[in-house]
Design a protein around this nucleic acid. Structure first.
Lengths: 348, 348
DNA sequence: TTGAAAGCGCTAACAA
DNA sequence: TTGTTAGCGCTTTCAA
């Protein structure tokens, strides 16, 4: 590989002139010198070493991305969107880390990012405890956190971007109530997270605001250890079976995410219940696949592209102003009506 | 951030001693010196800069991963598996690039990887033309290519890992024939790739080897530009509609991947055809979701974990022996029987 | 067993 | 407008 020295030699100029060309400081060079250098660069097929540049400047054009697991299609979609936008808009590449929502993993990934000299990271994982994140920020990493409320007590600035989960829960429950359902359940894996709590709050709020009495309950499945899609489906399946066999089952179910909703509908089916004739189901995340399954899944869609752009913009902005006040940005979800919701059996 | 100098000063030793500690050269240090240094490292919470290390050694513990798009759940799953294994087994992190199967993008991503000093990359994208990959290899990047046959003429060593696509096609078609189907179609988006051709070959082979006459055809949908899952589903949907409305439709369809199969079944349904009663469908990739939809999709599963381990092992191995002969590794797929295949209408 | 010093490839301050 | 030079933080000879 050619170095800046080789280019300087071939062009008959000094390395600083070459450096100036590389950094587009046209005003410091005579046009002909500029061209001479350009020609030498071309000839040698020279490309500057990012490692050397980074060592000198302390900057590297990489951001870190921590997601629970891209094996979950929702995360895969977000990862693809982030990577594409960061590259297109800022020329940044993405270092991918799958956390499996494990705090120790997350901490070690943050550490690695700092060691690599990465300046900013996007964290998508709703672990309630944020202390290891704060450590990373103190070590100089800018972090944008998705789907977790901001902590006003925090001594360090962490930007937060999230969908309005309360509204998501409300939207889903209200839709069910509007279809005549009077016994609703919110289904999720065991274990509370901030975003789950918000969804539940909205879900309950819709019931409380209804003109009629509506019974609500939260149903937790097994807890999850791998954040791919297969385990989530299985938890949903088991829960669906259980609900399907129960005598006093809810007629409308809001499921914390689409993958689990698929499993839940399969479990319901296994127990002899049809969706939406016997039980209505609403998912959240709006997978592309949800359009195509039968019955097509009604789902609460999050404005992914908007949120992704915002997260990347925040991350890059904080690179140049690390001490700016943390921003808290909330995005509004939308209900996508499809075929998995109908009036409850009694109402027909 | 503390540097090696700070540590040396605090420990009262030279930087080279600290370096020796960092690199575990215990035999070059008196145990007590070792401990002194360790204490200083601890005290300062020192972590060596990877950039500096890389500049000196030319090595960095990152590998590149190029996939069409993690928005496709199959790719998301592979990406998660690669990241986890590379990290766990070798302590390597992953630089993620979504190529959208665009040659120019791929080329620029390879270039970036080289610029970052990344030594090895895994490429998952069946672009037929491999020249830009060869360029990258010539620039010193070790590449392992997935799902593309090796090119014996190639002047540079590129390792190839792939499922036995011929067998995948054969398995699927044979399963349909065994159920009594005599008119089969292979469905895919427009445009031939190496892996699609192999699947078709196997598909036709099964028909040719059958004891009875079997009619086969290849049905191409629209061509695809975004390699997420939504467009693939739509292409399948349109194709399903078309087939469902056709008078002389095949009774059994092998679809090039699960995502498109979901869309195709939805299209069939839209045209009034049921799966599997009217038309049987087999997918390929075996998404976790395929278990849970209705009808559960019979699919050809690729041994992802085995292939992923092999790809990462190959990539890392080539780092230390760039000129080793290229390996060509083929893995055997399995048919996962579920509910989307039945005997054809006539046979009942 | 330890330390001094060169240098990886670049940027940027300063001098010419 | 151009060149010289001092590092960035490490690893790695080579000497002591």
């Amino acid at each position: 590989m050619a170095t800046i020295q080789d280019v300087a030699r071939l062009a008959g100029v000094s390395v600083s002139s070459v450096s100036n060309v590389l950094n587009e400081k046209r005003d410091r060079l005579r046009p002909e010198t500029f061209d001479k250098v350009l020609a030498a660069i071309e000839k040698l097929d020279y490309r500057p070493s990012r490692a050397a540049r980074q060592l000198k400047t302390g900057r590297t054009s990489m951001i870190g991305l921590l997601v629970s697991s891209t094996a979950n299609p929702f995360m895969g979609q977000i990862a693809a969107a982030i990577e594409a936008y960061a590259q297109r808009r800022y020329g940044y590449r993405v270092l991918l880390c799958n956390t499996q929502r494990d705090r120790r993993q997350e901490a070690s990934m943050f550490q690695d990012l700092v060691d690599f000299g990465v300046g900013a990271a996007i964290l998508i994982s709703s672990l309630a405890d944020e202390r290891h994140v704060e450590d990373a920020v103190r070590r100089g990493l800018a972090v944008v956190s998705y789907d977790r409320g901001g902590n006003p007590d925090s001594s360090v600035p962490i930007d937060h971007v999230q969908p309005d989960n309360i509204e998501a829960g409300r939207l889903a429950a209200a839709h069910l109530i509007q279809h005549g359902h009077r016994h609703l359940a919110f289904a999720m894996p065991a274990g509370m997270t901030i975003s789950r709590q918000a969804k539940i709050d909205g879900f309950r709020m819709a019931a409380a605001n209804a003109q009629v009495p509506v019974r609500t309950e939260v149903i937790e499945g097994r807890s999850i250890t791998m954040y791919g899609d297969s385990e989530l489906g299985k938890v949903g399946f088991e829960l669906g079976q259980k609900i399907g066999r129960s005598a006093s089952a809810p007629t409308g179910i809001v499921v914390v995410n689409d993958m689990m909703a698929f499993g839940l509908m399969a479990g319901l089916r296994d127990a002899g219940k049809r969706t939406p004739e016997d039980v209505s189901v609403i998912g959240m995340d709006d997978f592309a696949i949800s359009h195509y399954i039968w019955p097509a899944l009604t789902s609460v869609a999050m404005p992914i592209d908007d949120m992704v752009r915002t997260m990347v913009d925040c991350a890059i902005a904080r690179l140049s102003d690390p001490s700016a006040a943390a921003s808290e940005l909330v995005f509004t979800p939308t209900l996508i009506e499809r075929q998995s919701v109908a009036c409850p059996p009694g109402a027909r």
